[in-house]
């Protein structure tokens, strides 16, 4: 074998490659399938995260469902309203303005507030800790603090605070609900962005027990219910709940009335 075979090799493969690619490009013209051009446009407008929050396998499947009329643009909880209205325009639909939902962590039991129950040396996930004795923190209802929600978030919108409590970035959060599914204690919920008043506790134990495990537990004293005349808060099964139908967007209750400070204003009023 001499050096010229290198050149022969290059030329041969080049020519072969060219011939085949030319053949294929002709074939792709001849055999092209007329796909609905709207599908590609819609795929571009969808977020492309393939998170599956709409219930379809991915953004491409969602786009096909949109074009065939099986889905509505509002089924995608992730895309911003600007892109959704563009999609609706392509499909010739009236867009219904839907309020953005964000995840809210309904617990304040970080390592400062929540008592420590035991040393936990098992698998470092909330799910595992929840299954074997509930992890190191004392409250059986609150945050375990191993960040399953953070790992579940496809948008990097949840971070762990210094004291071990997940914090939602309300601007980045798209409301896809992955963290809600991931949390074994169900302390993360999706709420419309206009809601700002929350009872940040899920503990339904009796007041004494609740208070003994966490400084910021709801002790179902009922002061919130009395202060609002029953129109805004209700204590049900040892836990205060906000009645968002009656509660207006403006907070009427001074949150400092709550003795354990578990009624909190989350986010800034007026954010969208």
């Amino acid at each position: 074998m001499d050096i010229s075979s290198i050149f022969y090799a290059i030329i041969t493969m080049g020519v072969l490659g060219f011939v085949f690619s030319a053949g294929l490009s002709i074939a792709s013209k001849k055999l092209s399938v007329k796909e609905d051009p709207r599908i590609t446009k819609i795929i571009d407008l969808l977020p492309g995260a393939n998170c599956g929050a709409c219930g379809y396998a991915g953004c491409a499947a969602m786009a096909e469902a949109l074009v065939s009329g099986k889905a509505e643009p509002a089924n995608c909880p992730v895309a911003n309203s600007e892109n959704l209205s563009k999609i609706a325009e392509i499909l010739g639909l009236e867009v219904t303005e839907k309020e953005r939902k964000v995840a809210v962590v309904l617990c304040q039991g970080d390592t400062n507030n929540q008592k420590k129950k035991a040393e936990y040396l098992g698998v470092q996930t909330c799910l595992a800790a929840h299954l074997v004795g509930g992890g190191p923190r004392a409250c059986n209802w609150g945050c375990i603090g191993y960040g399953d929600c953070i790992r579940a978030c496809p948008f990097d919108a949840i971070h762990m605070s210094e004291n071990g409590l997940p914090v939602v970035d309300r601007e980045k959060c798209t409301g896809c609900g992955k963290c809600v599914e991931a949390c074994p204690r169900n302390i993360i919920e999706l709420h419309p962005i206009s809601r700002h008043v929350f009872v940040l506790c899920k503990n339904r134990d009796n007041p004494k027990l609740a208070r003994s495990v966490c400084k910021t537990a709801c002790i179902s004293c009922g002061i919130c219910e009395r202060a609002t005349g029953g129109k805004g808060f209700k204590v049900i099964n040892n836990l205060a709940e906000v009645d968002y139908d009656l509660y207006t967007k403006e907070p009427v209750l001074p949150t400092d009335k709550c003795p354990t400070k578990c009624i909190v204003i989350v986010g800034n009023p007026g954010e969208t």
Partner: peptide
């Protein structure tokens, strides 16, 4: 051209193109 050593490369090229064609 005494290029027998290119057989795998060129065969793969042929197969890939043919499969594309069949797919279309």
């Amino acid at each position: 051209l005494k290029l027998e050593f290119l057989q795998i490369v060129s065969f793969i090229l042929v197969i890939a193109s043919l499969v594309q064609l069949v797919e279309m």
